[in-house]
């Protein structure tokens, strides 16, 4: 079974996002693996463990630092890593999906995993686009995957705990919301070991598309309301919260 995971290296939202012109100042932000891709990598490895095969992780190297992410994926159980030398931090989902689809085509995948969404998916997510470019069915919001023969059985989540089970003839693209089990931990020693041993295949980007969006502005939201901030030390904050709750009959 050829299992492929398409990942996205995206600006971290843990810190402030400085703006340059009409977009984020990509030179001033840290890039991290999209959090849903951690789930997607785990789901891919779980499928491999269940039915055998190889897991290939593919991503666009938007800032030239994808190796760290790929090493982590290998330490968590992926078998092969491929980076597309895109080198464009502003590459949008359409562009990345097209490059990924072209690279994935050559891997003859039976199943492709992608994170269900990323926080920078302004022009939509790569999963459904890869599916469209490769003419495969797509289901997103998936929280469990079982594969047998040429069929995948997936559970898709709707809101409020409702969901649906689908059976899909492979190949397909799965948008992972959460893996069937929480992502495994890879000790740093193992990641370092992998980093020394691993070979990352480099692929030149192939195919160009445009998202057709022109940026007019990128800015933090205009705040219409703001919380009344409680200042002071943690103890003072706690005292004020308790006082507030008592005054409202909530404690």
């Amino acid at each position: 079974m050829n299992i492929v995971v398409a990942i996205k290296h995206i600006p971290s939202i843990a810190d402030d996002l400085p703006v340059k012109g009409n977009n984020v100042d990509f030179d001033s932000v840290d890039f991290v693996l999209n959090e849903f891709d951690e789930q997607s990598i785990e789901q891919a490895v779980l499928v491999k463990e269940a039915v055998g095969g190889t897991v290939t992780v593919v991503g666009v190297d938007v800032i030239g630092e994808l190796d760290n992410v790929l090493h982590l994926a290998l330490a968590k159980g992926a078998d092969k890593a491929v980076k597309i030398t895109g080198d464009d931090p502003a590459a949008d989902s359409h562009q990345q999906a097209k490059w990924l689809a072209e690279a994935i085509k050559g891997l003859s995948p039976n199943i492709v995993f992608a994170g269900v969404q990323a926080s920078n998916d302004l022009d939509g997510q790569i999963g459904p686009m890869i599916a469209a470019y490769l003419d495969m069915p797509y289901i997103g919001g998936v929280s469990s995957v079982e594969v047998s023969d040429h069929t995948a059985t997936v559970n898709k989540e709707f809101a409020g705990g409702f969901g649906a089970k689908y059976s899909v003839s492979l190949p397909m693209v799965v948008g992972v919301q959460a893996a069937s089990k929480p992502p495994r931990y890879a000790p740093i020693s193992k990641v370092r070991q992998v980093a020394q041993m691993a070979t990352i295949e480099k692929v030149a980007p192939s195919g160009g598309v445009s998202s057709g969006l022109s940026f007019k502005k990128m800015a933090p939201p205009v705040v219409t309301g703001h919380a009344e901030m409680i200042g002071g030390s943690s103890k003072e904050v706690a005292a004020k919260i308790v006082e507030l709750l008592k005054s409202k009959g909530l404690a």
């Binding site: 359409h94 939509g124 459904p128 469209a132 997103g140 919001g141 709707f158 809101a159 969006l213």
Partner: peptide
């Protein structure tokens, strides 16, 4: 931008070559 719409909007964009704005 829901469990249903998220499966189709970006797919339709790639199929038709028309732009998509999410979120």
């Amino acid at each position: 931008w829901t469990a249903m719409g998220m499966d189709i909007a970006a797919w339709l964009s790639a199929r038709t070559g028309k732009p998509c704005v999410a979120y």
